[in-house]
Design a protein around this nucleic acid. Structure first.
Lengths: 189, 189
DNA sequence: GCATTTGCCTAAAGCCTTTAGGCAAATGCA
DNA sequence: TGCATTTGCCTAAAGGCTTTAGGCAAATGC
C-alpha cells in the first residue's frame, strides 16, 4: 500500500468531522484509521493517544468557534452584539454537535492555556462594554452569560426543549431579550 | 466462592459511588465487578449492558436530586425558593460530581418518561409561581433557569471559574440576585 | 546514486463488553 | 427432611479499542 498522507492536522480535521457524524464520545483512533483505510497503529505516529486526538479536536473547535464569534462581533455593540455572539454558539452547536461537545472536554491547565478559551472570555467581556457594568459585577455577568449560552445550547441539543411548546427558537429570542434587559438593569448588591 | 448478593439495586448504588470517585465516564462493568470481587460476567444477570448500568445510575441521580429539591422547596417561595433550589443543584454537583454528570446522560424517550425529569421541570415552575409571569413567558423563564443552573454548575465543575477572582461562590450569589431581579422585572415582548 | 528519514505495516499484549453454557448453593414444596 | 427447581456466580471465548515495538519500503536530501 502506498502512503495516504496522514498528518496530525488531517487527522484532527477528520476527527472533527467524525465527531459531528457519530458523536464526540464515539471518536476513536480505530474509527479514524478505518476512515483513512489505514491500520490503527499508523495513527500513533501522528497523535500521541486517543486522549491527545480528542484534545486536538477540542482545541480546533474552540478556535473555529472563537473565529466565528470574532466575525459576528465585528461592528456590533449592545444587544446586537449579545444576540450575534449567542447565535454563533447556538448555530455552531446545531451545525457541528460533535465539535461543540468537544469544546466541553476538560482540558489540562497547559492545554487550556494554549486554547482559544481566553478569546471566548474576552468576547463576552467585549459585549459587556456596551452595558454599564463595573467590576466585580462585570465578571459576574460574564459568568452568567457563559452559563446561559452553554446551558441553553446543551439542553437544547439534548432535546430538553423539543417536546413542548413554545418553540425553542422563540424561547431563545426571549431569553436573550431578558438577558439584555437584565444587563441594562443590573441589580445593586 | 459463595454468593455475594448482587442485585440490580446494589449495583446501581455502587455504580453511583464509583462515579463520584472516578468520574461517570470511567464507570465500567469491569470496575464494578472488581469492586464486588466478582467476575465480570456475573454482573450481566443483573444489568443488561454497560449502557443499562449507566442509565440506571442516571435515573437514581435524577431521583435523588428531585428529592432534595422537593425538600428544599417545602415552605419556601419567591427568591427564597429560587436560591434554595439553585443551591440544591450546585451542592449536589459538588458533593456528587459523578452522579451529577450522570444526570446529563442523554436518555431514550422511554427512559426519560420514567425518570424524575418531570419533577425537575415542575419544581422550577413552582418557583415561578412566586413571580408574576404568564405563559408563554413562564416557559421561557423555566428554560432560562434550567440553562443557568445547568450551565453554571457545569462550568464551575469544569474549573472554568476557579482560576480568576472573584470567588465562584460570590458570583453564584450575585447571579441568583440578578435572576431574581429579572424575574420580578421580566421584559415585555 | 546512495544514505537517511519518514510513513505505514505486522505483531502482540492488555483491558472492556457481551454471550453461552455449567455447577453448586439457595429455595420451595411434598 | 428430601428432592427438584431456580438462582447466582463461574469459566470460556469472541470481538473491539488502545498502545508499544520493531520492520520494510517509499520519499527526501546530499
Amino acid at each position: 500500500m502506498g502512503r495516504v498522507g496522514l498528518t496530525t492536522e488531517r487527522l484532527t480535521r477528520a476527527g472533527a468531522e467524525l465527531a459531528d457524524e457519530v458523536g464526540f464520545e464515539q471518536v476513536t483512533v480505530s474509527a479514524l484509521a478505518r476512515r483513512f483505510d489505514v491500520k490503527v497503529a499508523s495513527l500513533y505516529s501522528h497523535v500521541k493517544s486517543s486522549q491527545d486526538l480528542k484534545t486536538r479536536i477540542a482545541l480546533l473547535a474552540l478556535e473555529e468557534l472563537a473565529d466565528r464569534g470574532a466575525d459576528a462581533l465585528a461592528g456590533r455593540a449592545g444587544k446586537d452584539a449579545l444576540i450575534a455572539l449567542a447565535d454563533v454558539y447556538r448555530d455552531y452547536a446545531r451545525q457541528h454537535p460533535g465539535r461543540y461537545a468537544a469544546t466541553k472536554l476538560p482540558l489540562t491547565p497547559e492545554a487550556a492555556a494554549g486554547s482559544a478559551g481566553g478569546r471566548h472570555a474576552e468576547m463576552t467581556r467585549a459585549i459587556l462594554r456596551g452595558y454599564d457594568l463595573t467590576e466585580p459585577d462585570q465578571t459576574h455577568a460574564v459568568r452568567l452569560l457563559g452559563s446561559v449560552f452553554h446551558g441553553y445550547v446543551s439542553l437544547e441539543l439534548a432535546g430538553s426543549f423539543s417536546h413542548s411548546a413554545p418553540d425553542s427558537q422563540e424561547s431563545w429570542a426571549r431569553v436573550l431579550d431578558a438577558l439584555d434587559a437584565l444587563l441594562r438593569n443590573w441589580p445593586a448588591p
